[in-house]
């Protein structure tokens, strides 16, 4: 098979440029294979993160031809032939070197989320949940923390509204909110501290998610609806006024 041409970003925060490389192509090759080839033959110090190379750990996030993607899951034959393949680091995060960025912000946000607080076990020492109770959240638990959604979300990428926790943590907040065993109420934080209102549901997070999690439809919009119900719905507000205290307790228990 013919060689492929790549333009890979090389540089640090002080500056850098796309550099040309040529790699042989083999069947089923992915972009990460090309990067490995470059490391082994042309540039041993080309910085790049990767671990599992099977789309399960979410380490090799980058922007391939401008699209936030996992390099290990981007087949070379899925990219337009004959044109150089451009590989750049995630643009939303501060650059460390070459394709490696500083994603520590994500870990800080995660720490601010109030931890899971389960209700007590049943008398026989088990927790009983039906498959229908857990299925919705199991979708969110597929998240591999590649942070491609955080990269592409324009609230963070373009507007730098870091008051917004970003799609990844909306997912996590939704997980906790919908968890059948959790007893904590985080709605006010979701509204204020994590800024769900910053999301304008333009769905780019969903488009780039390598795990096909419907981030916007299944996590963020339901959170927006819950927040709307709690803080903005005039009818619900009236309803609560009429039912008084009882309604409040119900929303606590869920």
């Amino acid at each position: 098979m013919a060689d492929a041409r790549l333009k890979v970003f090389r540089g640090t925060i002080e500056g850098g440029a796309l550099k040309d490389y040529q790699v042989p192509v083999f069947e089923g090759m992915v972009v990460l294979d090309a990067i490995h080839h470059i490391q082994a033959h042309d540039a041993p110090d080309l910085a790049c993160r990767w671990n599992c190379k099977a789309g399960k750990c979410g380490s090799c996030s980058a922007e391939v031809n401008g699209k936030p993607s996992l390099m290990c899951m981007t087949r070379m034959d899925s990219l337009p032939a004959g044109r150089p393949i451009v590989v750049e680091p995630m643009r939303r995060f501060p650059l460390i070197r070459d394709l490696v960025t500083d994603v520590s912000w994500n870990y800080e946000i995660n720490k601010r989320i109030k931890p899971f607080k389960p209700k007590p076990r049943e008398a026989d020492g088990t927790y009983r949940m039906q498959q229908m109770d857990v299925e919705r959240i199991q979708e969110f638990h597929k998240c591999i923390e590649c942070f491609l959604c955080q990269d592409t979300c324009h609230v963070l990428r373009d507007h730098r509204r870091y008051e917004f926790a970003g799609p990844r943590f909306m997912i996590r907040l939704a997980t906790l909110a919908m968890h059948p065993l959790d007893t904590e109420n985080r709605l006010r934080e979701i509204k204020d501290q994590f800024g769900v209102g910053y999301c304008n549901i333009t769905k780019c997070c969903t488009e780039v998610c390598p795990e096909d999690i419907h981030i916007t439809d299944n996590a963020i919009i339901p959170l927006k609806e819950r927040v709307a119900g709690e803080f903005y719905d005039p009818l619900a507000w009236l309803w609560r006024l009429v039912r008084g205290k009882k309604a409040d307790q119900r929303s606590e228990v869920h």
Partner: peptide, 25 residues
């Protein structure tokens, strides 16, 4: 905001649906 995914958005003091667009609720 944004025109397309990973394409530069209009630069202004973006407030999402927290200020003017709060009516979306």
């Amino acid at each position: 905001n944004p025109p397309a995914c990973a394409v530069g958005a209009l630069n202004h003091s973006y407030r999402g649906e927290r200020a003017l667009f709060i009516f979306q609720n």
